[in-house]
Design a binder for these strands. Sequence first.
RNA 1: GUGGGUGUAGCUCAGUUGGUCAGAGCACUGGGUUGUGGCCCCAGGGGUCGUGGGUUCAACUCCCACCACCCACCCCA
Length: 421
Amino acid sequence: MRYKKLRGTKDWLGQEAERFVLFFKTASDLAEKFGYKPIITPIIEPHELFSRSVGEASDIVQKEMYEFEDKGGRKIVLRPEGTAGTVRAYVEAGLDKSNPLQKLYYFGPMFRYEKPQAGRQREFYQFGLEAIGWEDASFDAEIIDYTYKLLTMLGIKFKLHINSIGCKSCRPKYRQALVEYLNSNKDKLCKTCQSRLEINPLRVLDCKEESCKIVNQSAPNITKYLCDNCREHFEEVKKTLEKLNIEFLVDPLLVRGLDYYTQTVFEFKIRESKSQDAVASGGRYNHLIEDLGGQPQPAVGVGIGVERVLLYSSTIPKKSPLNVALCWRSKELKPHALTLKSSLVNKAIEQNLNLSFIHHSGSFKAQMKFAGKNASLAIILFEEEFKQNKVVLKNMVTSEQHIVDLEIASLLENIKNIITA
RNA sequence: GUGGGUGUAGCUCAGUUGGUCAGAGCACUGGGUUGUGGCCCCAGGGGUCGUGGGUUCAACUCCCACCACCCACCCCA
């Protein structure tokens, strides 16, 4: 074995690859049902896009980005998340001015230089939704509703945590109160939190260190510091979720690691596991479009971790699609089998049938062995039957077989009958 | 970035105190038996024992380094 995949990357093969594709189909179909349209943006972006949006002080920008200089001396990064690129494209296309209301979904690989672990890779896939242009709480609820439905469809058990972290006018007041409180308890905080206190005090709130947890329990509650506008918005989000029968938990300690969030933030957490527990998360980012040079537009979005979803999904099937194998008893029949196969493929496309047709080569025994392993049905050509325009249709699971007409339409009817039986 | 565990055929694993120990089962390929796969029988391919050094007459086996994977922390998707 000469070459190995890079650390923290993954090859998708066999059933895993099939499940991956199936996830994308499910997620994008559902997104389309909610009126979201696809957007595809580059994997490489300028470094500054993320330091401006995700935040200079965030862990992602400080230590997790893949960065390099291209031949023109530009500072490039492999995107660590999907929102910044989407917003950049939105502003660059002038949509903020010409057509500001946009509901978009994206899908693709993201990159973060971290130590790999189960459910955590250096290259990982995200499926995300962004609703840009609406300030109304119903869109926060829509994004959450979508994610809730998708994860439920996929058979994932989760807990939804939500919080509001305020806006530009009320958060500074809270921040000040928090810093004052934390400073008076500074000696009880862990080392990282003592430095967080300087750079990003809100992050202290979701520290898992026991001593910090105790301090956090009596910390000022952000909900009490929200301005009227933010409070009303949050109340409406909660009311709407209740009407939609979506269970959630208000978690005043939920703070996201990305700087661009305002007001609503949420995380879908897996019940059983405590680490790598977020399968999906997101929130509102009302200033990001403006911060990236566009006209001010409010927005809300979600990012869903594909690997984690696949890890916990119980309903995405692992079974391959239904295969029909063509086999021939003697060499002379081979060309007939192949033309038959080609006609069957045409018909299957025409009638939109969920069937695939395969063949092997070599000895008859080898063909049958291949069929037994890879197909549910076999169409077998024998000299005697073929002379009378007949073939053998064999169910490879039950071993039942019948001599049937070679004619395409009736052959397909027979196949359908076996499948539905 | 910190700590712990693991690393022998595609997979699951044996390998005795360093000296025919490079093996088994499954999988794979070919053949036999059934006008047609699975059962059975015969044969075959496949490994520089994670990589690189060191000790030794001799290393899969001892020592060191590195790499990869897993787990926990951290962080998040």
